[in-house]
């Protein structure tokens, strides 16, 4: 194997790395911001409010991300009214369609994760909040959501890693992320091992970075659940 190719073309990989990171971060932030209110409605809302959220989650969790991206990027162009709308300048951009698909996809998974965490809130906490005279919103903001986020963190960290890996699909709609960079190098030099192993290494570094930060966050948020250290008693 000849890794001097990679040394020559590291700027492409670096640009790809930047694209992968911002796509992942943007998708996760948008997805989570949408998911929290949807999860609350899914738990507390009436049947009529829950139905569209159920349908949304069912569709996005039951179909491949690749198809969702193709439906948005290639599919919407089928409609005349879409092409004439003001939004077309956005929907004709590959990055926008990929980001939209990623954000909606992670949103659907996050709704289920947060919903599960909210449902598992201990009834005592809610009773205590009610006894203190908190309003529904205040209770949600101070009691239910903070404790739900703690419980959701392990499952959500898996979702973060799945999203990072999911962004590799952006390379199929002309976006040059890490995988896109590797595909350029592989077709330019016909050296699949070097090109894709470098990409794999970069993804592994990103994955372990997520794992590292989640562990630190877990220690911070769930410190009261960890076994006591001897030094705590000294």
């Amino acid at each position: 194997m000849d890794f001097s190719i990679i040394q020559e073309s590291w700027p492409i990989y670096f640009d790809g790395l930047v694209t992968t990171v911002w796509l992942t971060v943007a998708a996760l932030v948008i997805g989570l911001l949408l998911a929290v209110p949807l999860a609350v409605v899914r738990v507390q809302g009436g049947a009529l409010a829950q139905a569209p959220i159920r349908a949304f989650v069912y569709f996005f969790r039951g179909t491949p991300l690749l198809i969702q991206m193709f439906l948005i990027y290639y599919g919407l162009g089928q409609f005349q009214w879409m092409q004439q709308s003001v939004l077309w300048s956005l929907f004709s951009e590959a990055w926008f369609c990929a980001l939209l698909a990623f954000a909606l996809n992670t949103c659907a998974y996050s709704v289920e994760i947060i919903r599960g965490a909210i449902v598992a809130t201990s009834p005592g906490e809610i009773e205590a909040a009610r006894a203190c005279g908190m309003s529904r919103m205040l209770m949600l903001w101070r009691i239910i959501l903070p404790s739900a986020f703690r419980r959701a963190l392990p499952a959500y960290s898996n979702e973060m890693i799945f999203m990072l890996h999911g962004t590799a699909l952006a390379s199929t709609v002309t976006i040059v992320d890490i995988t896109g960079a590797a595909r350029i190098i592989q077709s330019r030099y016909y050296s699949p091992w070097e090109a894709f192993l470098t990409a794999a290494l970069l993804y592994m570094c990103l994955t372990f970075t997520i794992v590292f930060f989640v562990r630190r966050l877990e220690k911070h948020w769930q410190g009261h659940l960890l076994p006591a250290r001897v030094s705590d008693f000294e």
Partner: peptide
């Protein structure tokens, strides 16, 4: 550890193109 750190698409491209070679 390694498999769960790499996207499935990248692994597939390694096996397909790398395997071919």
């Amino acid at each position: 550890t390694v498999v769960r750190g790499i996207p499935d698409l990248v692994l597939m491209l390694i096996v397909f193109y790398g395997g071919q070679m």
